[in-house]
Design a protein around this nucleic acid. Structure first.
Lengths: 185, 185
DNA sequence: GTAGAGTCCTTGAAAGTTGAACATCAATCC
DNA sequence: GGATTGATGTTCAACTTTCAAGGACTCTAC
């Protein structure tokens, strides 16, 4: 239970961990509040729209969408069902593999995303990046990439990073410049 | 929509943001999976138990518990109700203010926490800290603290950092060394 | 004292997530 | 071919979280 037991977190790690937990909790709360208020959707749904918007053809297989958003198939299925009901996404069977379903961003969905993006980005800036130096931004990326490398090797670690990358690659190889390579992060 | 618009994220920020989102998603998934499997509770509930365990008297007012865990009162209320049903937490009215409720960790709750902690800490280590250098751990803390400073000034930003600190201070001023100053993070 | 405003917590319903079935289709292997 | 295994999505039930409402109490200022 003391901090020199290698199994436990030492003081620096413990403080970093607590700060990280607090930061993530407040940040996600702020994002959800802003998006729910201004766009009527939670952050998770916004991410689905954003990911679709960045990909050629503005469409992805459901499972690739799950991989790219680091979420479960079940979650994406529910999310897309809701987004489809709102008219922001359309679902259609895949041509080559009849098990697959393609989710496609509608024009209306893209418009909603475009109108929501500035407020969202402002929220991210205000709550995170505006308080960081350039060095800290770079360090943050390095830290997260290191963690991602670590977690990608895990067994039941869920959707992997490579899977997401592969998904984008696969999608990109199809439509070349079908448009929509924007970044409404 | 281009990256030199000051309202948008530049390339470095965008990559850091995406890495952060992915990291947090995978990390929380891993923590929830581990704790659900080994202790039968989600990470949010574990945090409630852990916070209680670190405080003198192993008890806190509900609102302080909410502040310290960066969550809403409603959330904590539901969580404690569940934990109470499991026999891990007990609720009793506060002496000085009859609006308040004190949540107290039971012996059984502490035992569950003790048995769950090693696995949890191992999970945190494996998925995060073991992949980071000492400099990165320190940088992470600096980054999160900077973000927390920024978010604490926000209007509807929910429970603040100071509030949490004050909660611990308040709790500490009471029971001095009532025991339980462990760190089962 | 007491009216009004603010604090503290709980509750119930709605929204979102999860994990376990399940159904469908593809790929592999005799 | 036909059986087996694996991949892909959806759905159900259980669970967690959020939101809005409300009950109980305290504090302040007349």
């Amino acid at each position: 239970m003391t901090s020199d037991d290698p199994r436990w977190l030492d003081d620096g790690e413990y403080r970093a961990w607590r700060s990280l937990l607090a930061t993530v909790a407040l940040l996600e709360a702020a994002l959800d509040r802003q998006l729910q208020r201004d766009a009527g959707m939670p952050h998770a749904y916004y991410q689905v729209l954003a990911m679709l918007s960045e990909v050629p053809g503005r469409s992805l297989r459901m499972s690739d969408l799950a991989a790219i958003t680091q979420s479960s198939q079940s979650r994406v299925s529910h999310a897309v069902a809701k987004l489809e009901a709102a008219g922001w996404v359309r679902r259609r069977p895949a041509r080559d593999d009849r098990r697959s379903t393609i989710a496609e961003l509608t024009a209306e969905g893209f418009a909603v995303l475009e109108s929501a993006a500035p407020g969202h980005v402002a929220c991210v800036r205000e709550n995170l990046f505006d308080g960081l130096t350039r060095q800290q931004v770079d360090a943050l990326r390095g830290i997260c990439d290191a963690a991602l490398d670590r977690m990608s090797g895990q067994p039941g670690a869920g959707p992997l990073r490579e899977a997401a990358a592969a998904a984008v690659r696969a999608a990109s190889s199809g439509g070349a410049t079908a448009g929509g390579a924007e970044r409404l992060a």
